[in-house]
Computed example of a mutant assay.
Amino acid sequence: MTVIAGKSVVVVGGSRGLGLGVADAARAAGAQVTVVARATTDGVQGDATDEDLAAKVLADRRPDLLVITAGAVPGMGPLAGQTWQTFSVNWHADVRIAFVWLRAALRVPLAPGSRVVVFGSAASLRGSPLSGGYAGAKATVRLITAYAAAEASGLGIAMTTILPGITPDTTIGEVAIAAYGADRAALSTVPTAESVGAAVLGLAAGPELAGAYLVTADGLRPLAA
C-alpha cells in the first residue's frame, strides 16, 4: 500500500501515452482512477476543452491528485509550410485544456491537500522549430499553471508543471522522432511512460512541490522559477 492507495486520481488524457502511464501507475498503487479522454471505455468520455465537463468531473470525483496530460499532436513542418491553422493547433488544445481544468480546480475548488500536475514539454525551454506553435503553447501552459498555483496556495492546493522531452512509443514522440530524424539509440535512456507515471506518483507523495520539473533519465529535476 502507498499514500495514494484509496485516493481519487483524475487523469485528463489518460487513455494513451504518458497519461496512460500515470493512470496505470495510480491503479497499480491502489488509487481510484478516473480517465477523461475522447475515446475511453472505462472512464469519462468527452472533450477535455469542455468547461462544463471539467467542473462536473472535479465536483463528482473530488480528486486528491489531478493530472492534466491531454493535448494535440502538432502539425510538423518548417514555418514557411505552416498555416495559422496548423501553427496554432496546440494553442487551441493544450493551452485551453490547461486553462479549463486549472480554472475548474480553483472554482470547485479541490480540497485542501490536493495536488495538480500539468504536463508541459521540454520543448518550451529550447524550442521546437518543426512543430509550429507547440513550444510556445507549452511555455504558456507552464506560465498559467504558475498563475493558478499562486491563487491555489491560499486554498491549500499544490500545483506544478512537469516537462518531458521526446519519448518514444507515444504519439507525439513518434511524430517528433520522424520529423527530426532523432537517433533511437540515443533515446534509449529517456524516461518511459511507466517511469514518468511512477515519478508523478512520487510528487503526490512528497512534502512539497517545486514550480516545475524537467523529466530526465534519472527522474524529475526541479527547475528554477
Rank of each mutant, 00 (worst) to 15 (best):
A135V: 00
K138R: 03
E151A: 14
S121V: 00
A150Y: 12
V12W: 08
S8P: 04
A176T: 02
R107C: 09
D24E: 14
V57W: 07
A148H: 03
Y213Q: 00
E51T: 12
P207V: 03
R126Y: 03
A217E: 04
F119L: 12
T34P: 04
R27N: 14
G14A: 08
A80M: 05
G81C: 07
T34H: 12
A193Q: 00
G132N: 03
A178K: 09
Y180H: 12
E174I: 02
W91T: 09
A148T: 10
T69C: 11
T2A: 07
R96W: 10
A149P: 05
T69K: 00
A25M: 10
G132Y: 03
A5T: 11
L214Q: 08
Y134A: 02
G120H: 03
V11M: 13
P112G: 14
R142A: 15
I144A: 12
P207Y: 08
A105V: 09
G173S: 11
R221Q: 02
L220E: 01
G30V: 04
G17Y: 10
T40S: 14
G14P: 09
G219W: 00
V36M: 15
L155E: 13
V11K: 13
A179G: 03
T161W: 04
S124N: 02
I166N: 05
E151G: 10
L65V: 09
F99D: 10
R96S: 07
Q32N: 13
V89K: 08
A39R: 15
Y213D: 02
S131H: 04
R107I: 06
A137V: 04
L130E: 06
K138N: 05
V196A: 04
P207Q: 04
T145H: 08
A72L: 05
M1P: 13
E208A: 14
G206Y: 06
G71R: 09
D42F: 14
L155T: 05
L203A: 11
